[in-house]
Design a binder for these strands. Structure first.
Ligand SMILES: [Mn+2]
Ligand SMILES: [Mn+2]
Ligand SMILES: [Zn+2]
Ligand SMILES: [Zn+2]
Lengths: 138, 138
DNA sequence: CAATGAATGCACTTCCATTGCATTGATTTT
DNA sequence: AAAATCAATGCAATGGAAGTGCATTCATTG
């Protein structure tokens, strides 16, 4: 059982107070978050610092971006089953049209997609939209 | 064989010179286009007019937007096999990492995607990235 | 303690989408 | 045909978000 500090250092990420806070914030969220979400959670922190913090996390492979079609970049920690470091991170994402939240369905892999002759598939982004489990009253 | 004028009118779109030009531009393009692409093609026209022209086309169901993950909205005419008016337009899109162009693969339908219990799927956006047929030297 | 390099904060820029409003243009009504 | 009406257009401005430059602060180390 590593501490967060040890984990970050193992990923070659220097530990700072801000980075610890942002990491914990991401870890306790079960949904993807926007930069504004983080900004609102830490009103005293500068937006640029937060921006560069998640960017560092992304560069070091512990956070991945999600483009869910809302036009706003979402972020989430890479967790069990999320292989972002491998070029093709093939888990799918679900965007709720009701509450507006987007979640990683890490355990749901994207099926093989056929493309026409001459096309070479390197990566796939798949976003399912609909009603999430919380909003469907389940 | 309808004329373009008749087609637009059948879709409840008032015919103007600008709309005819933009429609023809979209029709002769075999790839998706950005607003800037249209702007460059009609240097004399105002950006806002072009923006509202494609928006009108979209509202009337003859154009659909594509979010290919580049952060810039793409547009394409709805053609044979494209059922945008139906809530679930399920054809896939291909973005070429080499030439940067995005195409509708209208004939390639998106397979049924399983989501966990409690989630309700209403729509799917699937973008495949890789090398297109022109760039792969096929 | 001095020196070095990274992290942070502030200001600024860029890019694209979107809107307000006045004007132009077309269509309908009298 | 003239007047009235409504939509389309052009110009200016706004808004939202990503990204950058640079000076300052902070932490590490020799
Ligand atoms: Mn994810
Ligand atoms: Mn399409
Ligand atoms: Zn929901
Ligand atoms: Zn290409």
């Amino acid at each position: 059982m590593k501490t967060i500090e040890q984990f970050l250092e193992s990923k070659d990420i220097r530990v700072t107070a801000m980075r610890l806070l942002v990491y914990k914030f991401l870890a306790e969220k079960e949904v993807t978050v926007t930069l504004s979400d983080i900004e609102n959670a830490f009103a005293k922190a500068d937006r640029t610092t937060l921006y560069r913090t998640v960017k560092t996390f992304e560069d070091k492979g512990i956070v991945h971006q999600i483009d869910d079609g809302t036009g706003i970049t979402k972020y989430a920690l890479c967790e069990k089953g999320c292989n972002c470091e491998i070029e093709t991170d093939l888990h799918l994402h679900f965007h709720c049209n009701n509450c507006g939240e987007t979640v990683c369905l890490t355990e749901h892999k994207i099926p093989q997609i056929k493309v026409p002759d001459g096309f070479v598939s390197e990566n796939v982004n798949l976003v399912v939209k609909g009603i999430c489990d919380k909003c469907s009253g389940q």
